[in-house]
Each structure stands twice: as structure tokens, then as C-alpha cells.
């Protein structure tokens, strides 16, 4: 039976402190009677102790500070993006509210004027629809032109 061999394998792991309680007990029981293995365990413990006591290399302070600064910038950028996204969603909702609001509001402000110009109820909504669409088109065209100019500027900067 290779009990001794198996124990020898477990000795290293015991010195490393990673044995289960059951295995640990097994080994300790064996050690009570075996001198050779006890001596061996001491060697391993010495090695483990040496590893634990290795001097800790330290990073240079300038490296740490640069890492800190850059990581903080990146962190705030990430959260900026997330914040921006929620703001934009909110603004799109707002823009829709504004658009839909302009229809009845204009109607209200002009009172019965539009009613005189356009005889039927449905016609009024067509006028408003045309108005809103043209507004969106004009705004959209302005937006496209503006972003093109902006991108050009960014690239040259």
C-alpha cells in the first residue's frame, strides 16, 4: 500500500495550508509515528515560511499616482456616458411632448382663426401635421449639417 507515498504528497499541501480537515488529521496521525515524514514536513514548512517572508517589491510612487489619475478620469468618463444617455432619453420624451403640445396650443392661441380658414376638423390636423413634419425636417437638416461640421472640427483639432 502506498500510504507513505500519498502522505508525502500531502506534506507539501499541509505546509501550504490547503488541506481539508479530514486529510490534515490523516497526515498528523501518520506523523505521530513517522520521523522521516516529520522532518520532511519541517523542510516544507521552512520553504513555505521563506516564501511568505519574501520582501514585497513596491511600485514607484509616480506610477501609482499616474494610474490613479488616469483611472479616475476613465471612471468619470464611463459614468458621464451613462448619465448622458439617460438625459438624452429624457430630452427625446420632452421633445415629443413639446411637439404634440404645439398643435393644440397654436390652435388655442389662434382661437377660431384657423377654424375660419379651414372649414373641416380633419383639415386642421393635416395642417398641423404638415407644419410639424416641416419643422422636424428643417431641424433634422440643421442637425445633420451641424454634426458634420462638428466632426470635421474634432478631427482637425
Amino acid at each position: 500500500m502506498n500510504g507513505h507515498e500519498k502522505i508525502r504528497e500531502l506534506l507539501t499541501l499541509l505546509a501550504a495550508g490547503v488541506l481539508e480537515p479530514r486529510e490534515e488529521k490523516q497526515v498528523l496521525d501518520h506523523l505521530r509515528t513517522c520521523e522521516a515524514c516529520s522532518a520532511e514536513l519541517e523542510d516544507w514548512k521552512l520553504l513555505a515560511g521563506g516564501l511568505r517572508r519574501l520582501p514585497t517589491p513596491q511600485p514607484r510612487a509616480v506610477v501609482v499616482e499616474r494610474a490613479r489619475a488616469q483611472a479616475q478620469i476613465r471612471l468619470s468618463e464611463e459614468f458621464e456616458h451613462r448619465w448622458n444617455r439617460s438625459v438624452i432619453v429624457g430630452l427625446i420624451v420632452f421633445a415629443w411632448v413639446l411637439t404634440l403640445l404645439s398643435w393644440p396650443l397654436v390652435r388655442l392661441l389662434t382661437g377660431g382663426l384657423l377654424g375660419l380658414l379651414v372649414p373641416g376638423f380633419s383639415h386642421a390636423w393635416i395642417v398641423f401635421g404638415a407644419f410639424t413634419t416641416s419643422v422636424w425636417l428643417a431641424g433634422g437638416a440643421a442637425a445633420v449639417l451641424l454634426s458634420m461640421q462638428h466632426r470635421r472640427e474634432r478631427r482637425l483639432a
Binding site: R66, A67, Q70, A71, R74
Partner: peptide
Amino acid sequence: AEDLFQQTWLRVAE
């Protein structure tokens, strides 16, 4: 190791 140190913390932020 120093360079990787900085990169690791950038990754943490990301």
C-alpha cells in the same frame, strides 16, 4: 509590471 499596473486600474474603471 508598472505599465500593466496602470492598465489594470484602467480596466477596473472600465
